[in-house]
Design a protein around this nucleic acid. Structure first.
Lengths: 221, 221
DNA sequence: TAGGTTGTTATTGGATCCAATTCATGCCAC
DNA sequence: GTGGCATGAATTGGATCCAATAACAACCTA
């Protein structure tokens, strides 16, 4: 009852379950999603499943082909690179919109997330905390369109971020930590210009590292 | 039978009809969309209507609230301003991705559209041609994610562009034509840097003009 | 033996019916 | 007269059944 998902519809509940499965890697890119399987596995009939798939398609997590069903998009290196270039353009904007509304409590929260990142080095945990770190820096951005676009970009690239981290390990953790600290310092100075620049550099460096590892995109077969 | 829409699904057909109605102003922002009305008006049952509404929600043309139905989003000036700031960041990227693949035939097509803009000054026609002009400049961009985002931004702001044009008339046509010509010239020189800059200025100036006319956002009641 | 064809099966798309939720109207108490 | 509450209608959400389309396989023919 304290759970907020109870009040939402069955289609939202199914969408959330599928979203989790896709983002944490339980459902891999390229995998097909049959409506009846999902309906049976998560409960309910095929109809809310269809609506859930539409919701996820809107978020870029699945793609639907008429009369052919839904599957998790399998991206090539060029697509992921473009998604990162989109991040480089949009997220500094989100950060600048957020800056003015960031409370000191928000900054403390960001700092705490970074502290946890520098402690635990587990890949799965890092993916979660890194996402929380950046999203926390955008909490002051109240524009839903912009934030939805940002979330879409993170969702679409989540799998390849995990593949990269699993491949390279946490060897690059020091660089990420340095970038995060620079960003935090700019946030505390309320310096929008610097913060945007540090964020841009952070995303751009990650993009270049990703494209340097095309083996991430090889299918598991 | 020669019609391509026949081969597509009913939900796509209904979505296209609604999309047209929203973009050309037949359905105004804030207006509610009752499923049964649409099903009756466009043919078919409520089920493909629901899927069509999901499709349009993914494009930002309607917003769906659980158990409350769908309506065309009514944006405030701040939201539109942010959407334009997003355009300023994303469309130069789309243009740069497009540049290398633009054929001379594409450039001729762009030039022809601009020629028609400088002839006819009808507001409705201008909205169509202006959109065609910019989209034609992005034809070389093959990335679907990026183009979908750009189209979403155009769709979401279409109504306010029309309201602005209807209010101010075509007095600013000379400025737009000058900007378009500068952009075309940069495209023909294959100068990505200049083209991005001209495009950024074009969108930014439009944004500033829009926010200078808050009466666009007053509800018709 | 290879290629095309045809029939079968599995899966998605759509229509109708029923349940749950929301909104509006009117009533009653204060 | 106004605020709260209950009852009604209107609308959306979900389940089941049926039709259409696509993937698959076996078969036949050249």
């Amino acid at each position: 009852m304290s759970d907020a998902s109870t009040e939402s519809a069955a289609s939202s509940r199914i969408a959330q379950a599928l979203r989790d499965d896709i983002l944490n890697g339980s459902i891999a890119p390229g995998q097909r999603l049959r409506q009846e399987d999902i309906a049976e596995r998560l409960g309910g009939s095929r109809l809310p499943v269809r609506e859930a798939l539409r919701i996820l398609a809107a978020e870029g997590l699945v793609q639907i082909e008429p009369n052919k069903g839904a599957r998790v998009p399998l991206l090539d290196p060029g697509e992921v690179e473009t998604l990162y270039r989109m991040r480089e353009r949009l997220e500094p904007l989100a950060l600048s919109e957020s800056m003015a509304n960031l409370s000191s409590a928000d900054l403390a929260e960001i700092s705490d997330i970074q502290r946890r990142i520098e402690q635990g080095v587990d890949v799965t945990e890092f993916l979660i905390l890194d996402r929380e770190f950046h999203m926390a820096s955008y909490t002051g951005c109240s524009d839903e369109h912009l934030m939805l676009s940002v979330v879409r970009l993170w969702n679409s690239t989540q799998h390849y971020r995990r593949a990269f981290m699993s491949l390279t390990g946490s060897g690059r953790a020091q660089i990420v930590n340095a970038e995060h600290r620079l960003l935090m310092e700019a946030l505390e100075r309320r310096d929008t210009e610097d913060a945007e620049l540090y964020l841009l550099g952070h995303i751009r460096r990650t993009r270049k590292e990703l494209v340097r590892h095309p083996e991430i995109f090889s299918t598991g077969s």
